[in-house]
Design a protein around this nucleic acid. Sequence first.
RNA 1: GCGGACGUGGUGAAGUUGGUUAACACACCAGAUUGUGGCUCUGGCAUUUCGUGGGUUCGAGCCCCAUCGUUCGCCCCA
Length: 422
Amino acid sequence: MSYQTVKGTYDLLPDRMVKFNILSDLFRQFLNLYGYGEIKTPVFEYTGVFQKENDTSDMVTKEMYTFSPNGKDSLTLRPEGTAGVIRSFVENKMYGNNELPIKLGYIEEMFRHERPQKGRQRQFTQMGIECVGDKDPLIDAEVIALGYFYIKTLGLQSVKVLINTLGDNESRLQYKKDLIDYFAPHKDELCYDCQTRMEKNPLRILDCKIDRDSDLVKNAPKMKLTENSAKYFEDVKHYLDVLGIPYEIDDRLVRGLDYYTDTVFEVVSTNEASGSQATIFGGGRYDNLVKEMGGPEISGIGFAIGVERLLILCDAEEIFDIKNSLDCYVINLNEDPDYALSIAEELRNNSFSCEMNYYKRSLKAQFKSSERKNARFVLIIGEDEVKEGTITLKDTLTKAQESVKRDELTDRLDQLMEDYYE
RNA sequence: GCGGACGUGGUGAAGUUGGUUAACACACCAGAUUGUGGCUCUGGCAUUUCGUGGGUUCGAGCCCCAUCGUUCGCCCCA
């Protein structure tokens, strides 16, 4: 019997895990820099957390991993980060006990039953933030800044920021009406999907890959923003300018879920290695979500970064400079391993990373191992050394070799390392 | 969910209209060099085995069907 990973899932092996950790460690640093606390919510929630009753999005139903362990409760593996965090925000009444806004960040696995593709797995990881409890253009700009400067600090070049506004509730409702009025007489000219989108969410027609280049869509009316909403967007752009964040306005950028209001944004890759999954991260402001989740009427904003996609891009731009290194490798030529074993442990107790040879192999083979492991120092132990209570120590950088007494070993290693860096 | 491509050792891969011994390279192991690696040379290295299961054939890695997986695009991307 042989097994393999479930379609769309993968093992994160040590080499890749190192890169993964670089990405998440830096993200945690950024959370800290901007005053975000890390949160972990359950991997599964009641299905209702992710699926609202009057959700008009196209996808939510078929792409979720929903199950019922007892035939009663409907549970779902989380397909995204925001809903669970907002549920937690409301459930723990964070809006009451603390100064607002509350800033939360997460790095967690998500599950979507989609057809796998490059940069799209069924289990994948997102790093995201949510800033909940207040609405101000400064916050929007800061949220984008956190994501943008994170990406930049990683060293990525081929990315650009797209922003748009979906307007506040008032302007948006009016815009939906305007669009329906505009498209209705031309319904036949739209693709099949867009004809149904017209009823549910006409905003998505603007984002349609089939129709987006048609004159009909190009000439569609723009949103008439309310005065407040227009000013809000102007302020966000102004603050981005102040922060030195370059952006493009993409008035057809309409994030998939319809809980977004006002500011929406995406960071996309212009590197072809990303394939068709070019969006590295996306997010936006949501005025209504907290209330829909049973909380007070307060606004929030957040984004999520697809870590696997980010990793693909980082590999393509070769931003990782990873060298595994080991301080000491203990070669043992003696029949009895006791001496070598105790030396290895003594080194580790003194914070030197150390590996040793486990079984009888030729000296040459053991040296090869030490080289593969990129060991700085090679310690040779044979009958003579055991008898005399010494270690033959070889510095692989200077190739110098010396005999060291056992109780002077760690001091000597410290000294050699210091000397080298001077 | 739909359409195209692909699936050969640890890795990258050759394999011509089905024809008998699955190339080549890297990596790995051993030796030359019996306590000193990196270079060189020599030898070894795919349990009838080509994702898996059936079928056609005297004969299949090559053809057919199914299945699993990967990949590119569509859909979607919370």
